[in-house]
Design a protein around this nucleic acid. Structure first.
Length: 306
RNA sequence: GCCGGGAUAGCUCAGGUGGUAGAGCGCGGCCCUGAAAAGGCCGGCGUCCCCAGUUCAACUCUGGGUCCCGGCA
């Protein structure tokens, strides 16, 4: 009999954390965070982490493990998530994977191609070339090496062009060929995926309320603290980092920073919605403002026991 | 009150010897496999302030209004 793995996904501010805690309690689960930013220590407000009291009640994994100066990526996530799943199963408990990093989740359940990791020196070299000769130069190169990948990648999408060239150079095989050879845990476990959905305007209102709350809780001083130390490229992408840094440097007002953060978070939520739409096998749960998280958690729990 | 400047997409603004108009942002949609809270792509019929005149044709010219912004009183 296959062991069970449960996933809870949804866009930012959809209410994952709260429902996950209640569900975990009900079914005796331990939570694995599927989140590229909650992995970082010292960034709590900006990432809306569960509180210390909450993580004491329900064991959480892959939260607070890296310093913001360290890089993180899908491959690292996948590896440690697999370990955690095993570890939790051995304890006779059920792993509950919760988060909004869509790529991470997909890489975990459908697999990540076996490829060379990033090579910073090579990437630097390539991006220098792009600056010197233009993106089109690199794109033409890719077209010659790997026409299939070039076909999928937009000529302006420099990041993906570079990655494809990087893989070709290091692996001596096109990325498009490698990407076909992936396997994940979809069939290995009894996988149940639940997705949270809300009406667009309600979700956006929740985002705005959450950002206001972050400011009240001291978002600005948290970012100020983070800015004092070296920060990795990954952590730098955190929503709130650039927006608050601009305010702290005196480029614009606090209100403007809040406005920007709200807008950028809305854009982010939209991208998540787009991404999750293509996720296979999701049981979507339509939520509204009136729904209580306990009742939703109970519903999910009930559907799992049938 | 006088003298300038302005009124065009949700917002900020371009524009045109008269042939019904664009950019950025927002907003909406989408793509995505080692930076993913990142990165990329696509989408514009809108009373061109109102009224009258000239004209085959006015958002564009002329006259008269209305409102806004400067300066001077």
């Amino acid at each position: 009999m296959k062991k069970r793995v449960i996933c809870l996904i949804g866009p930012t501010a959809s209410g994952k954390t709260e429902i996950a805690l209640k569900l975990a309690k009900r079914i005796g689960a331990e939570i694995i965070s599927c989140d590229s930013m909650q992995i970082y220590k010292g960034i709590d407000i900006a990432t809306s982490k569960p509180t210390k009291a909450e993580t004491r009640r329900i064991p959480h994994h892959l939260i607070d493990v890296l310093s913001p100066s360290q890089e993180y990526n899908v491959a690292l996530f996948k590896k440690s998530a697999l370990e955690k799943i095993n570890h939790i199963h051995k304890k006779g408990k059920v792993p509950l994977i919760v988060g909004g990093s869509g790529l991470y989740l997909r890489a975990l359940i459908d697999g990540l191609f076996e490829g060379p990791g990033r090579d910073s020196a090579l990437r630097n070299k390539l991006s220098q070339q792009a600056k010197k000769y233009g993106k089109a130069y690199l794109y033409r190169k890719l077209k010659k090496q790997d026409p299939e990948a070039a076909c999928k990648i937009h000529p302006h999408d420099l990041r993906r062009i570079i990655r494809a060239l990087e893989v070709y150079k290091l692996a001596r095989e096109p990325i498009s060929a490698r990407q076909k050879k992936t396997f994940g845990i979809r069939d290995k476990y009894d996988l149940r995926i639940f997705g949270l959905r809300r009406k667009r305007d309600e979700l956006y209102r929740r985002i705005e309320r959450r950002v206001d709350k972050m400011f009240r809780k001291g978002l600005a001083s948290e970012i100020k603290r983070v800015m004092k130390h070296k920060i990795s490229r990954t952590a730098e992408g955190l929503l709130g980092y650039r927006e608050i840094a601009g305010y702290l440097k005196g480029e614009y007002s606090k209100d403007r920073a809040s406005e920007l953060l709200k807008r950028n978070t809305r854009h982010y939520a939209k991208r998540q919605i787009s991404w999750f739409k293509n996720e296979k096998g999701v049981n979507w749960i339509e939520l509204s403002d009136e729904d209580k998280s306990q009742i939703i958690a109970d519903k999910i729990g009930l559907s799992l026991s049938r």
